[in-house]
Amino acid sequence: MKEEYYLLLDTSTEVCSVALGTRDEIVDYEETRGSNKHAEQLADIAAGMLSKIDYKHDLKGVGVSNGPGSYTGLRIGASYAKGLCWSLGVPLVSVMTTELLAMTIFDMEDELDYPNALLMPMIDARRMEVYTAIYRGSYDDHYFGVVEPLTDIAAVVLTDEQSQARLQEIVGDKLLYYFGNGAEKAKEIFDTLLPGSQLIYDLHPRADAMLGSVVKSISLGQTEDVAYWEPYYLKEYEAKKSVNKVLSRTLGKH
């Protein structure tokens, strides 16, 4: 039986990452930095990986970060993924960037007590604003890291007092890990606001972390319409109207 492969792409931040995996494992991974070079980097890396397999017959799907994140980066990733899926007739799966970033933490399993912690990935928006959501992590039957969203994704202003109060109610005395390219600017606030929280430095979304999610979504037929799908940019006007509502959605669960 011939091996089935999946190409995985993330261009949502300053890091461009590409992975090639089978149903069970990652067989190739590469990342580069420099958001102004994503267009050329993505195409070159992906082409190099695909050249190692009979991709016209053995590529069974493409996964790509869905956003929020860098507008330009998301457009580049989406355009490449859609073009490849359209030309080869393979399914497309999108993974929310905050979810992908949260799943990246499973590579640090020996260092963190994540099964007993809440996970708060943060994508830098501007000034003291971040794109974020709160998750709980676990493993699936195939030992892939999976995350359960406890809030919707929102653009949160870290200095907003009402948002801070909601966070305190949601997190309580639980251990909270927060990370991503927007996380360091939260440290001074969280050290006082959430004493049980811990900042994880130098963690960014990695394309290889989406393998389990992509394989599962394709097996369930939960794929995107290649012709019409667009990334989730989380425009400012969409975020501000519901920031406190989405953070408070978990209050009835804890």
Score class of each variant (00 low, 15 high):
Met1Gln: 05
Met1His: 11
Glu4Lys: 13
Tyr6Cys: 05
Thr11Asn: 04
Ser12Ile: 00
Thr13Phe: 03
Leu20Thr: 12
Thr22Tyr: 08
Arg23Val: 12
Asp24Trp: 11
Asp24Glu: 15
Glu25Gln: 14
Asp28Ala: 15
Tyr29Leu: 05
Thr32Leu: 14
Gly34Phe: 09
Lys37Met: 06
His38Ala: 04
Glu40Arg: 11
Asp44His: 12
Met49Phe: 15
Asp54Asn: 05
Lys60Ala: 07
Lys60Asp: 01
Gly61Gln: 06
Val62Thr: 00
Val64Thr: 00
Gly67Cys: 01
Leu74Lys: 00
Gly77Glu: 01
Gly77Thr: 00
Ser79Ile: 00
Ala81Asp: 06
Leu84His: 03
Cys85Asn: 02
Trp86Glu: 08
Leu101Val: 03
Asp110Gln: 12
Asp110Pro: 00
Glu111Asp: 14
Asp113Ser: 10
Tyr114His: 11
Asn116Lys: 11
Ala117His: 07
Asp124Gln: 09
Arg126Ile: 00
Tyr131Arg: 01
Thr132Met: 07
Ala133Glu: 01
Ile134Lys: 00
Val147Ala: 07
Glu148His: 13
Glu148Phe: 09
Thr151Lys: 06
Ala155Thr: 11
Ala155Phe: 07
Ala155Ile: 10
Val156Gly: 06
Glu161Phe: 09
Gln164Gly: 15
Gln164Met: 14
Arg166Gly: 12
Arg166Val: 15
Leu167Val: 11
Leu167Ser: 09
Gln168Tyr: 10
Leu176Lys: 12
Tyr177Met: 09
Gly182Met: 10
Gly182Gln: 07
Ala186Lys: 09
Lys187Ser: 15
Phe190Arg: 04
Leu203Tyr: 10
Pro205Gly: 09
Pro205Arg: 08
Arg206Gln: 13
Ala207Lys: 05
Met210Arg: 02
Ser213Glu: 12
Val215Glu: 05
Lys216Ala: 15
Ser217Ala: 15
Gly221Asn: 08
Glu224Met: 08
Val226Leu: 08
Ala227Ser: 10
Trp229Glu: 04
Tyr232Pro: 00
Tyr233Cys: 03
Glu238Leu: 10
Glu238Arg: 06
Lys241Asp: 08
Asn244Thr: 14
Leu247Gly: 06
Ser248Pro: 01
Arg249Asn: 06
Arg249Lys: 14
Lys253Asn: 12
